[in-house]
């Protein structure tokens, strides 16, 4: 069985700015659980003008109590309080000529319990009067300069970020939740020729998987709006004061996150 969460929304910002915010989205006030972000791989193809990026995020996560009731703690690598860390692998491709960005994020651990794959497609909202893309690229030059200037260049108007006439960016998000719990265990058991899983026998495998997927779906429905809010904060900071403002905001968020972590 597989459960799917899907959502469509749009940001009132031009596509290039949204892609920039995507790379800059951590830390933000809605992401205090994100501990680190690293770039594992990045390739630029000068012919297609596409940029491929692979990043690794480390997030603090709390295994939901409902899950811990279903399966042993050791299975999800959680402490007695259910605290654990989760690595997320994120792949993205940006095509600036065609005006789209594709992303895919998946959890790296306890995929045997629940595999969560988030796919997003961003694209510039097309308006009927829009010129061809080369025209748009030309017009954007001055606006992007403004973003990179320091805070002394205060508050450029939103229009200065404009990228042709595409002022909004559409996003579709699809999260697939798939539990294979028990399957791998059975496989392992068969390989080892052992009989030792009274625990799994007490549940039908399929109903256990469905329960885990349902819990994952509830969590996703709660966390997705926060991800959108986080992006909006970063976009707002870019609009108000460019990079310098984003970096300053990040510094504050990081201090706050560390403060929260210190208290736990």
């Amino acid at each position: 069985m597989v459960k799917v969460y899907s959502q469509a929304n749009s940001y009132d910002y031009p596509f290039p700015i949204v892609t920039l915010a995507y790379f800059l989205r951590y830390p933000n006030p809605f992401s205090t659980h994100v501990l680190s972000t690293d770039v594992l791989d990045r390739t630029f193809d000068p012919i297609t003008q596409r940029l491929h990026t692979t990043r690794l995020h480390l997030k603090r996560s709390k295994a939901p109590g409902a899950v811990l009731k279903l399966i042993p703690r050791s299975f999800v690598g959680a402490s007695a309080q259910g605290e654990s860390q989760a690595y997320i692998l994120e792949r993205s491709t940006v095509d600036v000529k065609e005006g789209w960005m594709k992303t895919e994020s998946r959890n790296l651990e306890w995929t045997g319990v629940l595999s969560v794959i988030e796919k997003q497609m961003y694209h510039a909202t097309r308006t009927p009067s829009t010129a061809d893309s080369s025209g748009k690229l030309g017009k954007s030059s001055s606006s992007l300069d403004d973003i990179f200037k320091d805070s002394s260049n205060s508050k450029p108007p939103l229009e200065s970020f404009a990228f042709g006439t595409d002022r909004t960016t559409d996003v579709t998000t699809m999260v697939t939740l798939h539990s294979t719990l028990g399957q791998r265990f059975k496989r392992k058991q068969a390989e080892e020729g052992e009989e030792k899983v009274g625990f799994f026998r007490s549940w039908s495998q399929a109903s256990l998987q469905r329960s885990i997927e349902a819990i994952g779906l509830r969590r996703t429905s709660k966390s997705q709006p926060n991800a959108v809010e986080g992006m909006k904060v970063v976009l707002e900071r870019l609009r108000e004061g460019g990079f310098a403002n984003v970096l300053e905001g990040m510094r504050r968020d990081r201090e706050q996150a560390l403060g929260i972590k210190g208290k736990v």
Binding site: L20, L24, V39, R42, Q49, V96, L137, S140, D145, F148
Partner: peptide, 25 residues
């Protein structure tokens, strides 16, 4: 070293890549 790289990347990304002017990384 990550910060130095990130700073370089953001500058390149916004000044070259997003304008379709990038030749190399």
């Amino acid at each position: 070293v990550k910060e130095r790289y990130d700073t370089c990347f953001l500058k390149w990304y916004s000044e070259k890549f997003l304008r379709g002017n990038a030749q190399t990384d």
